[in-house]
Design a protein around this nucleic acid. Structure first.
Lengths: 241, 241
DNA sequence: CGTCGGCTTGAGGGAAATCAAACGATGTGG
DNA sequence: CCACATCGTTTGATTTCCCTCAAGCCGACG
């Protein structure tokens, strides 16, 4: 798995990417805190800030006039959030905190300036966007072609893998701070149906869930179920771990 | 509508973007031709080329092991294709021609070189990626939350708008070179159901379709139907027209 | 102790899938 | 020029996955 993901990338860019990541790390400014369910950025609002998630989970979502909501992405600590505000002054999406959250902030104008003089940083930003796009492709496949069960299995494996990459995966269970409503809005199904699929997985002994803490008991079975979306949870970093 | 899309962007970048686009235009090299249904790039293959579509339509798709296929995007003349091969040596998607096609080619290494010394070009590439991402967000909303009818209406309006921006929209009808199978793979439904929804729209006098030529008779009605995905077909260019 | 947010479970309905067959164009070769 | 195969569309009958509506439950918290 890791080997496949590895060979996806252009090894000649590794060094540059790593330097770019470090440069960004140094550019990050003051820290801000948000409560659970707080909105970092409302859809349609102007915004000049780019965030880096230090702790907590955030989701990017879009609300329809009739109340339907689609969660477009979920971010875990270490992720860059709101990068597109460098190019679009207004966002069409909202950023909402799924948990209490701490973020580092940097102004987009300042980031432009840095990136202009630091090709490594520019490359890193480009890479972030390309990576986000690849992730979205995978979700498009899921939403367009996969059953509720396949999507749910894929989401669980994806969450696990992303936490693992960030070194946030304890041994065994991990915390997944999404309500079943959130999961539904993420995977394009009703919360009721999320519950039923979860119940099925629980009864079959594949997973155990309790108070937002998830234990994947039978990862093989999950991978078999989610196999149509296998690209999703393949390692996403440019470098092997 | 145009006003909304306009205010989305950062006006201070317009000049730079336009210069970047021109630079890219000049960088494009030789022309290649492909037949209908030809594969420009197979999933998993290594690739060092970036394409600019001169004429014809191309789609980017992903095939699942069991035969299901999701079309991730459709490109019309003028669009840049395969940009992510700059960052990922291998593509997970295939590029297939929906019609006879002519493309301009440029090597990714060469493009890197140019972009390194030309910030306008680099910005333009970044912008392309960000824009693609925004488009995908819209489709995610569609696939996750919208009914077959809403998605189909949105697709028709989107196709029209994109052709219009490129100056390829005659008055009245336009050619949409997707089979109902393709449309189904794009919108996440079966070709049979595509046919039924099309038939419904035809009977209600909203559209007329014949041999891949589409006439939108009642655009207002379509816009009402597709309103949950309204952001999609809003003008996507960085500059007003 | 009551209330509130989130989870669970049941009954019934509806949108879209599946299966199946016929039809219409287009092209091809005898 | 007609048989014939191919590709795409159209339509019908049936099934299934998921949604809707509704009610009860559980734990947290003031």
């Amino acid at each position: 798995m890791s080997a496949v993901a590895y060979s996806l990338h252009r090894p000649e860019l590794f060094g540059s990417l790593r330097r770019g990541e470090i440069a960004l790390h140094h550019a990050m400014g003051s820290t801000r805190f948000f409560a659970r369910r707080a909105t970092i950025l409302r859809a349609g609002e102007e915004q000049d800030l780019i965030y880096r998630l230090r702790s907590g989970w955030v989701c990017r979502s879009r609300m329809l006039a009739d109340g339907r909501r689609q969660i477009l992405g979920v971010s875990v600590p270490g992720d860059l959030v709101g990068l597109t505000t460098m190019l679009f002054a207004r966002s069409l999406d909202s950023l909402t905190c799924l948990t209490r959250t701490a973020v580092n902030v940097v102004d987009q104008a300042q980031l432009w300036e840095l990136a202009a003089s630091n090709p490594d940083l520019a490359l890193f930003l480009l890479f972030q966007l390309a990576n986000a796009r690849r992730r979205q492709d995978n979700w498009l496949v899921g939403l367009g072609q996969c059953t509720a069960e396949e999507r749910l299995a894929a989401m669980l494996l994806d969450a696990r893998e992303r936490l693992r990459i960030r070194g946030l995966l304890g041994k065994g269970a991990f915390r997944l701070p999404l309500t079943q409503q959130d999961i539904g809005d993420y995977l394009g199904m009703t919360p009721v149906h999320v519950n039923r699929v979860l119940a099925r997985l629980r009864r079959s002994g594949t997973i155990a869930v309790k108070r937002h803490v998830v234990l994947l008991r039978d990862i093989e079975a999950l991978e078999r179920t989610a196999s149509p979306m296998a690209d999703l949870w393949a390692s996403e970093g440019p470098w092997p771990q």
